[in-house]
Structures are given as C-alpha cells and as structure tokens.
C-alpha cells in the first residue's frame, strides 16, 4: 500500500476543520464543498489527510470531527502545532523521514536523500515534496535549509514529550512567556473589553 502523503497545506487542513465545525461538527462532504463554492475534489485532499491524521472521520460521504479534531480547534494556534506534531509523528511518512534524519550524518538530509526517501510514496512530484517539507517545518519536526535544500534534525528536543515552539536556533523561548494565556485566555475575564469574545469552540469546553 502506498504511503499516504499530504496533498493539501496545513492552512487548508485547518480551514477544513473550521468549516466542519461551523456545520456543528458533522456535515455531508458535498454540502461542505458547496458552502465555500468549491468543487468536491478541491476539498478532498485536505479531507483525505485530515482523515489520515485522525482529525476527521468520513463515512457515507459525511465528514465528522473526531475528539482530536475538536480539541485541535479549541486550543491556541501554538498548541495546534503541538497536537499536529504528535499526530504527524505517528504517520509512516514522517516516521520514515525522522528515522532517516536521526541516523543521517550531522542530522542532515540532502534533497537527493529526501527524494529517494519519498520515492516509495506514489510518485510525489516536486511540489508534493516541498509540501511535505513544509508540513514538517510547520509542525517543527525538522528544520530546512532552503539554500542547501537540506532537512536538518532538531536535535536538542527529547523524543516525544517536548515543549512547543521554537527550534533550538531561536534565542529565548517565547512560548513559556505567552503560553499561559493560550488556552486559558478565553473568557478569563481579565477586564479588557476584548473578552467579550466567546470561547473558540463551545463544543469542546
């Protein structure tokens, strides 16, 4: 069986989750597409990968957010990346890449290595490879040197339980400073007029 790889960008995937959520967490796929004036095959790539990651369940042409999918929407942008990272780690695709990165000299994989590595996926064209790389970068699974076209392992992070945000190169970790506000921010009555806002996702809380 070919390894499934993302054909949509992280932004599109997230848009899909938001869209399903607007339909109270479950909706006919055709209706979802219709809502944004899209053809069905325009949302299928995101839907496929959302399903692969276990964020959405599709049965009988109906897409439903899973618990993970709901949780994803209820947290801050930064925490979403953490959830995504954990999900991606479980996929064959990223498992393979990360394993290769671990054993690679100096934790670097060149463009050629990546091409070879991904050769087992069903004929990924160049743009798909770049998309895969961008998923990895977004989820902070590895870094990427666009001049050398090389993947670089994020070394200092311990496997598994890792704090969100910056790769080792970024000085200072902003995550810690702002993080407290991230999930508790909603409706914490901090006095600012802005907290007239509602929780991001009432369903999840």
């Amino acid at each position: 069986m070919p390894t499934i790889f993302p054909k949509a960008s992280p932004s599109e995937l997230q848009g899909l989750l938001v869209l399903i959520n607007e339909h109270k967490g479950t909706e006919d796929v055709a209706r979802l597409a219709d809502d944004l004036d899209l053809e069905i095959d325009e949302i299928l790539p995101s839907l496929d990968y959302a399903e692969t990651l276990g964020l959405v369940k599709v049965s009988d042409g109906r897409a439903t957010l899973t618990d993970t999918g709901r949780r994803m929407l209820s947290v801050s942008i930064r925490e979403r990346k953490t959830i995504l990272r954990d999900l991606l780690r479980k996929t064959t695709l990223f498992k393979t890449i990360l394993r290769a990165l671990e054993s690679a000299p100096e934790g670097r994989l060149t463009e050629d290595d990546v091409q070879r590595l991904l050769a087992f996926t069903t004929a990924p064209s160049d743009s798909y490879v770049l998309n895969i790389i961008n998923w990895g970068r977004y989820a902070e699974l590895f870094r990427y040197d666009s001049d050398e076209h090389a993947l670089i392992a994020i070394r200092s992070r311990s496997q598994g339980r890792s704090p969100p945000s910056s790769p080792p190169s970024a000085p200072g970790t902003p995550g810690a400073r702002v993080a407290p506000a991230a999930s508790g921010q909603v409706g914490d009555g901090s006095g600012s007029p802005k907290d007239l806002a509602y929780p991001a996702n009432a369903v999840a809380t």
């Binding site: 949509a8 960008s9 932004s11 599109e12 160049d126 743009s127 798909y128 770049l130 998309n131 961008n134």
Partner: peptide, 8 residues
C-alpha cells in the same frame, strides 16, 4: 494559492 509556494 498553495502552488505558488511549491513551485521550485
């Protein structure tokens, strides 16, 4: 579009 980013 997403494609723009992926054009080598």
């Amino acid at each position: 579009d997403a494609d723009a980013a992926t054009t080598p």
